[in-house]
């Protein structure tokens, strides 16, 4: 540091009067704390809803958990009038419809996502993207109406007779239109936008340099997808599929409209069945005995555990995929 002294201090001109018009006005302190508390309260309420759902569903379900024990998920006799409740048929129906729906929706949804990010002509990407979002906006109950009054008759008159000629355990049994196949089809339609749009976001998060690097080496668009994009985004795409599973398992109204509502376990896709969500939708409003309500709530508890598990896994995968993409970009 320089050591220096000036002979005379610099003379300051007289200071113009500082207006004190606004001095001392404007508060912070307590208002800030109030805001923080309100915000934390709102956020906390949001966080508590999830726990609240779990706790209150479990509480209503308690009498059934006590009464049926483990046999609730290992038996399939569901007879409210006798007070016998086994939910295996609903679990089976849910697994069957979700599986068939995913088999149909995953390849198509992924194809749509790749069309939107890499393979489709650029000028078509935006309109197709909007249409897919429109597909997601149609209410479930409207899909249910359409499936019951349009899709099911088509299945009965045309599709199922044709499939029956293939035969096998999947394609036989009564041909009424309503049943596992119809529910699976409408589910697949409803899963498509979820799988397509989440995969699209994940694929988009793959850094442009990676794509361009591949293309600059003379890769075709498909080479770039195969060698660079999909390997990079695979966790996220898997997450998108898991989100789809979560939706499939929880989807209620459209399935309830066409699944046939019978608590049977049959490998046939033509047979009427039941799913966890649709049995709650159909029976909860009319259930009269406490045990019946509790049993339905226990089905709800199962549903909750399954969907939360799939969603947590999916969120972690999607977040990790997007983060690693962002990291590679930086």
């Amino acid at each position: 540091m320089t050591q220096r002294a000036l002979a005379t201090p610099p003379r300051l001109p007289p200071q113009p009067p500082r207006s004190l018009r606004f001095a001392g006005m404007g508060k912070s302190g307590s208002a800030d704390r109030t805001f923080g508390a309100l915000g934390a309260g709102a956020a906390g309420a949001l966080g508590l809803v999830l726990i609240g759902v779990a706790v209150s569903v479990a509480r209503i379900a308690w009498p059934s958990i006590q009464a049926s024990g483990f046999s609730f998920v290992t038996t399939s006799v569901w007879d409210p009038s006798r007070g016998v409740f086994g939910a295996l048929a609903f679990v089976w129906g849910t697994i069957l419809t979700s599986t068939v729906a995913l088999i149909l929706a995953v390849p198509i949804g992924l194809g749509v996502a790749l069309f939107l990010t890499d393979l489709g002509p650029p000028h078509l990407r935006k309109p197709v993207s909007s249409l897919v979002e429109l597909l997601a906006a149609i209410p479930s109950v409207v899909y249910g109406l359409w499936a019951a009054l349009v899709l099911a008759p088509i299945l009965r008159t045309t599709v199922q007779p044709a499939l029956a000629k293939i035969g096998g355990p999947l394609f036989r049994g009564p041909n009424v239109g309503f049943g596992i196949l119809c529910a699976s089809l409408v589910l697949a339609i409803m899963l498509l936008p979820t799988i397509a749009s989440v995969s699209r976001d994940v694929l988009r998060a793959v850094p442009a340099e990676l794509r361009e690097g591949a293309l600059a080496l003379g890769a075709t668009p498909w080479d770039a997808v195969r060698l660079v994009v999909l390997p990079h985004a695979r966790h996220g795409v898997f997450g998108a599929i898991l989100l789809g599973v979560g939706r499939a398992v929880g989807e209620t109204m459209a399935v309830a409209a066409v699944v046939g509502s019978r608590a049977d376990i049959s490998p046939s896709l033509f047979a009427p069945g039941y799913t966890m969500s649709s049995v709650i939708a159909n029976e909860f409003p009319v259930a009269s005995s406490e045990l019946h309500i509790a049993a339905l709530a226990e089905v709800g508890l199962l549903l909750f555990v399954i969907t939360v598990a799939f969603n947590v896994a999916a969120r972690i995968l999607v977040a990790r995929s997007n983060k690693s993409a962002a990291g590679a970009q930086a």
Partner: peptide, 9 residues
């Protein structure tokens, strides 16, 4: 040290 500067800080 600039003493004047210190004084009129």
């Amino acid at each position: 040290m600039l003493e004047s500067a210190e004084a009129s800080a």
